[in-house]
């Protein structure tokens, strides 16, 4: 014990990035989870590298109704074909993916911040705080989700920020319930009692003693929710309530081109449909793998 690099033992939360890396390392044990993780990583990589990967401007009309694998007038190559307006589908899917992932991540993280705060308060303080928060959550959760989205978006208008707001509004009650349940369980642990008996504040206990121990189930749930938010953003686009055109989003691409599917141009609509399914599958498999791994340890 002569040379310890860490001279201060004060509790420090492990950096998030290290935790994520550790989680990925754990995934070695679950082939299904690893597959899911790879799919998700692939889409994130695609989103980040969109300017490099996408061959053309996603909104540039080049050659309408080109089938996959055909060439354009100036030697363009359409790996996945073009849509009815002549825009390259590969470019649109890649850029659309970036948009979907950006808003899904932003919305999920925001919803988590709200849900965690509410859940910790309700679960730790119980009593009327809990009943009030739970009642509000009950009211929101009593709406079928899509009905709620339609009502909110038609009221406040379709835009990226509004979609994020709607997702936070609709899904933070569910997160709050999970966090509340975990908190109710964790608050009975002796280490929480120990913190109380040494006079720690409620804030410290919630954030330092309870929250870090709830991370396992929350990470699993966050993966599932990322998938679900992806579905939702797509659904809003499909219903014409999504991100405003002409920038591509997957749901919008499906709805704009599906009338041409019967005329032999199914690729226009199938490509974004498969893309959204694959990404969601990735999130779901990843969540399943993480759950399996976290139960085992």
């Amino acid at each position: 014990m002569t040379d310890t690099t860490n001279n201060d033992y004060v509790a420090k939360p492990t950096p998030m990035i290290i935790q994520i890396l550790r989680g990925i390392a754990l995934l070695r044990e679950s082939p299904v989870g690893l597959l899911g993780g790879s799919i998700v990583a692939f889409f994130f990589l695609l989103a980040i590298l969109a300017p490099i990967v996408a061959p053309y401007d996603p909104n540039l009309p080049i050659l309408p109704f080109a089938l996959p694998g055909t060439e354009g007038p100036n030697g363009e190559y359409f790996l996945l074909g073009t849509d009815h307006l002549g825009r390259d589908i590969l470019s649109r899917v890649v850029w659309g993916g970036q948009r979907v992932l950006f808003y899904a991540t932003l919305a999920t993280i925001s919803a988590y911040i709200v849900g965690i705060i509410m859940g910790l308060l309700a679960g730790y303080y119980r009593g009327w705080v809990d009943e009030l928060i739970s009642f509000v959550a009950n009211v929101i959760l009593s709406f079928p989700v899509m009905v709620l989205y339609v009502l909110i978006i038609t009221q406040i208008g379709a835009s990226g920020a509004n979609i994020v707001f709607a997702v936070v509004f609709a899904s933070s009650p569910g997160i709050m319930r999970i966090v509340r349940g975990l908190t109710l369980d964790l608050r009975t642990r002796d280490y929480v009692a120990a913190a109380q008996t040494r006079g720690e504040s409620g804030l410290w206990i919630m954030l330092v003693e309870i929250l870090p121990n709830a991370r396992g189930p929350l990470i699993v749930d966050a993966c599932l929710r990322m998938g679900y938010t992806t579905i939702t953003i797509g659904a809003l686009g499909f219903l014409g309530l999504g991100l405003p055109p002409p920038d591509p989003d997957w749901g919008g691409m499906i709805t704009q081109t599906r009338s041409f599917a019967g005329a032999g141009f199914a690729h226009m609509t199938l490509v974004p449909a498969l893309a959204v399914s694959l990404l969601v599958l990735g999130f779901n498999l990843l969540a399943d793998g993480l759950r399996e791994v976290s139960i085992r340890d």
């Binding site: 749901g251 499906i254 709805t255 199914a266 399914s277 969601v280 999130f283 779901n284």
Partner: peptide
């Protein structure tokens, strides 16, 4: 897990392409 990953609007398109077109 697989079927839950295909949203309604995607499966509507997929199934239409298969069974209708």
């Amino acid at each position: 897990i697989g079927t839950t990953s295909v949203p309604e609007y995607a499966s509507a398109v997929l199934l239409s392409v298969i069974f209708v077109y």
